[in-house]
Amino acid sequence: MRGSIPSNLLLFFSIILGIFHCDLSHAGTQYKRTIENYSMPDVVLVNQNGAKVRFKELMQSNKPIIVDFIFGTCTTICPVLSAGFVNLQNKIGSDSKKVHLVSISIDPENDTPMVMNEYLKRYKAKPGWDFLTGSRKDIDTVMKAFNAYIPNKMSHYPLTLMRPSGDNKWIRIFGLMSSLEFISEYQKMANK
């Protein structure tokens, strides 16, 4: 039967191992920063207003771009990632569209335009922050393009991807930054 001991034991160990490679509890003090090359897939996603968005085109924008992966009903790490976005928008001030913040749903089936719109409202997001959903297949393609594929939303991890304007290199940040660290990463990128 399903609750039998050996299978639980396996599950149990796999979880412990899961924790091993995901120790992010020291938020704000440790994160891993690397420079990466990614090529953007040509898929059509849908934003919080229900409008279709050609992902590849969006990623070719001249503005600096910051991408993260979240979902509407996520606990713990999404609030923290999104707080970073809010604080950055507040810091930038009136011209919030100067930098393009793109949150990509990893729960595309539940994250409809309406759910995403409400999420952004909850965080008092300003123009310049978009939340994208799509078919599971297209979302998987996007996750894979950023080397961030997870088969199941519950095993996600905090990731922030930043691309300076007029560049095609991505700064990949694994782990949770404090807002101050995030803003300083942004400034480093913007002054480049």
């Binding site: 992010l24 790490i77 999404c78 519950m154």
Partner: peptide, 8 residues
């Protein structure tokens, strides 16, 4: 909970 590697 434990989510995204963060223990609450």
């Amino acid at each position: 909970s434990v989510e995204g590697g963060v223990f609450t």
